[in-house]
């Protein structure tokens, strides 16, 4: 059973917004991933989005692309990502985990086998960037059988008609891509985000998370004013990378990530404190 629905019910009852950090599994090596995940939870993460490394991550900006490349150099795959998730679950059975990745690694292993492995590892939802509603039916069937949420992306270019189609198939939450562009781009227009979210909410009661372009406490606070959840990806991946390139240890990468996530947590909380 997915942990996403109950979590959002609780948060709504408390008038809180969820904070969702994104990391690439195995970036820069597999030893960092599980300790980093635990530290993100300690710093205030409600859900963790775990990126599955792929050789051709078409929707990622340079920062996350490099994260994928570092993880692939270390040999991280879909299956080893799920092994890391299992390891995380040994001491955390509460925090919802969402896999974010691309279709081909799923196709290669077979949708049913992937859904089985996700259920076994304790995954709550899947976001597959290049499986739009037109192509996702077979995967979705497998996920639904195992009570794993399929999380759809909605973008600034999605028509009202498509919003209806997408929300009819979606569960868990909706992921609103805040800008036309790749991850980590810098041109977030919060007024436009607010307007689009209002349109989406006309068609669904599902929680709406907003990602792409949220870098710090300020942008997070603004977005949390209208969203149910805020996703932070490139800023975290960049910080981990910089620290390690500068010769930092895993410990300093973890403490850097914790202070970033704590500060964004405060930003998110500000949105609902008055």
């Amino acid at each position: 059973m997915s942990r996403l629905g109950p979590l959002f019910d609780t948060l709504r009852a408390q008038n809180r917004r969820a904070l969702i950090p994104y990391l690439v599994a195995g970036d820069p090596d597999e030893a960092l991933t599980v300790p980093l995940m635990h530290s993100l939870v300690a710093a205030g993460a409600d859900i963790i989005e775990v990126g599955v490394p792929f050789s051709d991550p078409m929707s990622e900006g340079p920062t996350i692309q490099k994260g994928h490349e570092r993880a692939l150099e270390g040999g991280t795959s879909l299956l080893s990502t799920l092994a890391l998730v299992k390891q995380f679950r040994e001491t955390n059975s509460e925090t919802p985990l969402v896999l974010m990745g691309y279709a081909n690694p799923l196709e290669r292993k077979g949708y049913a086998a992937v859904a089985d492995a996700c259920a076994e590892a304790g995954i709550d939802g899947l976001i597959t960037v290049d499986l739009p509603p037109e192509e996702v039916a077979d995967m979705n069937t497998e996920l639904q059988r195992r009570n794993i949420d399929n999380i759809f992306l909605i973008s600034p270019t999605t028509s009202d008609e498509r919003i209806v189609t997408i929300t009819a198939q979606a569960s868990g939450f909706i992921y609103y891509v805040a800008l036309k562009g790749v991850t980590g781009a810098g041109h977030l227009d919060t007024d436009a985000v607010e307007a689009h979210l209002a349109t989406i909410r006309e068609h669904t009661d599902l929680p709406v998370a907003v990602g792409f372009g949220i870098k710090d406490a300020n942008t997070a606070a603004t977005v949390a004013g209208c969203a149910d959840a805020v996703v932070v990806g490139s800023a975290l991946v960049d910080l981990v990378a910089k620290d390690l390139i500068a010769g930092g240890s895993h410990d300093s990468a973890i403490s850097g990530a914790q202070s970033l996530i704590s500060s964004i947590r405060n930003g998110v909380n500000l949105a609902t404190s008055n």
């Binding site: 929707s59 499986l131 739009p132 037109e134 192509e135 973008s155 270019t157 999605t158």
Partner: peptide
């Protein structure tokens, strides 16, 4: 009508491009 050649083809792209 779905852009398929047997099992091949299709539109496997991010949502942002679907309307284009």
């Amino acid at each position: 009508e779905h852009g398929r050649y047997g099992i091949y083809g299709g539109k496997f792209v991010a949502e942002t491009l679907m309307s284009a």
